[in-house]
């Protein structure tokens, strides 16, 4: 049975296709599948005028150019594509192992999070880095990945007062999600470490390192390795593929 999809209007140049009855991995899979079908149709010269597709956890937002696309036609075509049964996902996501230096200097909330979770800092690090996370979506800032699921003991609500400046590279947690801030920005998540790998580069073919459907695990590194990696990455001595792994 095809799952019910509904279309929600988002002005006259976009709409959101939502799978309201699905949760978690199943909804993410359906969103990726719909996205791939739309991209295939677009590559085949159909569905002219789609200018952007924004993937979220259980929805896909389709942005169109009103000068070249017919809103009703695109909407009807996408409803049809969603009903098409069969076709498994063409490509699976990539798997990454990202280094993280978990220290108080890099993760200002490390002691408080450990205390709130009633864990030692070492146990906290073992828990956070012992998990494989799914990239749910990219948003908030260019390249900012929302990843789940944070192990139960580490799930804390967001800070009551957001920080005005979270340093770039900060690894953070809030509720069941973990993230890395690609840019210095305000932020309300708990900071527990820092990752030296740049998550966004406008000059890469895929500017965002991560994409929805990717899987990420973290590897704890010390200050020395962090500094070495940071220098090597700045000089492009280390290819980003070095952080990709075949098996999660």
């Amino acid at each position: 049975m095809p799952t019910t999809m509904r279309i929600l209007p988002l002005g006259d140049t976009a709409f959101t296709a939502e799978f309201p009855d699905l949760r978690g991995a199943e909804s993410a899979r359906r969103v990726r599948q719909l996205r791939e079908r739309i991209e295939q149709a677009r590559d085949a010269g159909q569905l002219q005028g789609i200018i952007d597709l924004i993937s979220a956890v259980r929805s896909l937002t389709v942005c169109i150019d009103p000068d070249t696309a017919d809103y009703a036609h695109i909407q009807a075509s996408i409803e049809q594509l969603a009903q098409t049964s069969g076709t498994a996902l063409a490509a699976s996501g990539q798997t990454w192992t990202l280094p993280v230096c978990y220290t108080e200097a890099f993760g200002a909330d490390l002691p408080q999070v450990a205390q709130a979770a009633n864990l030692s800092v070492d146990a906290l690090i073992a828990l956070h880095s012992g998990q494989v996370y799914d990239v749910l979506l990219i948003g908030f800032l260019p390249g900012f990945p929302f990843m789940a699921q944070v192990p139960e003991p580490l799930r804390l609500p967001r800070r009551e007062t957001p920080r005005l400046q979270v340093p770039a590279g900060s690894v953070a947690i809030a509720n069941e999600q973990t993230a890395i801030y690609p840019w210095q920005s305000p932020g309300g998540w708990h900071l527990i470490g820092r990752c030296p790998v740049p998550l966004f580069d406008a000059h890469r073919e895929r500017p965002s390192l991560l994409a929805p459907g990717d899987q990420v695990r973290f590897r704890a590194i010390d200050d020395t390795e962090f500094a070495q990696l940071e220098r090597a990455l700045a000089k492009a001595d280390v290819p980003l593929s070095a952080f990709q792994t075949d098996v999660p």
């Binding site: 924004i54 800032l141 500017p207």
Partner: peptide, 10 residues
């Protein structure tokens, strides 16, 4: 720059 919303780019 339309078209980069998928990468989180406004």
């Amino acid at each position: 720059r339309a078209g980069y919303g998928q990468f989180g780019v406004p």
